[in-house]
Amino acid sequence: MLSFSLRRLFYSVLVIFGVVTVVFFIMNLLPDPARMMQGQRADLATQAAIRHQLGLDLPPLQRYLRFIGDVAQGDLGRSWSSNRPVLGSIMERFGATATLAIGAMTIATILGIGIGILSAVKSYTIFDNGTMLFALVGISVPAFVMGLLAMLLFGSVLDWFPVSGYMYQGDELHLEYLILPMCVLALRPISIIARVTRSSMLETLASDYVRTAKAKGVTWKSVVYRHALRNALNPVVTTVSAWLAGLLVGTYFIEYIFNWPGIGLQAVDAITRSDFPIIQGTVIFSAVIFVTVNFFVDILYSRMDPRVKLG
């Protein structure tokens, strides 16, 4: 078990190393930072000074090693527009993103699994066909379209919720600002979790041991919840964790549309301002979160399901 964890940990570090390398490579393809920072009319001396300050006058290999070293020490550079450390401003805003992501995933997990089980048990009925059609709609609508439509309906037409803004205004907490973005964000994972749960449950309900359980007279409820569900949950756990990781690292459009000050909104703002260090920092930070969540899921898996080989 310990050696398995250590090996997974080493692999995770390797993946993050790969991400940092890819980021370094892409950032080198982007337009020259010295020109971007100073505008078109910067004089050559200033540009050279900036290049020297950023270490851009060094040979590529040396720059790469320096970059890896900086990232390993948690130094992601400074923002070009505010000149503040990138990691600091990401950490500052991560709370807002995490609130939204965890809230949405809580709703999505409960509703998604519930709907999935019901659909599987009542398979091929009107309920099943109806919810699965809705789930397909949920998958088909891009986040920003869903966000705008929700804003249009609940914000403008019905006027139930504020159109956009953050839940903390000064020190006051206004939870009504959280509801709309959280629900919109939950729709896609609900649909996907429901579909995965349903198909996994259908497969387990058709298996031999479920038939055996039924044959020996176990109640239907107990068959579904104690025998089938436990074994059907594996792919569901994968989906839930992948979505949690996915939402934690970026709910760009929902944050942008609802003006929610998380790391997603910060990244979109950085893109419009060509503030590359922020984008670069967000990518690396996201990859670390993503890999970390997946690392813990792998460990959880091997504890939960003895069929998973510790290889």
């Binding site: 790969g18 984008i279 990859a287």
Partner: peptide, 22 residues
């Protein structure tokens, strides 16, 4: 390993970075 690296980078940011670079 390479597939996992690309998988760990948020798709949207990667797409945006590449299209800005090009």
């Amino acid at each position: 390993w390479f597939t996992n690296v690309v998988w760990s980078i948020p798709s949207l940011l990667l797409i945006i970075a590449i299209s800005i670079a090009l």
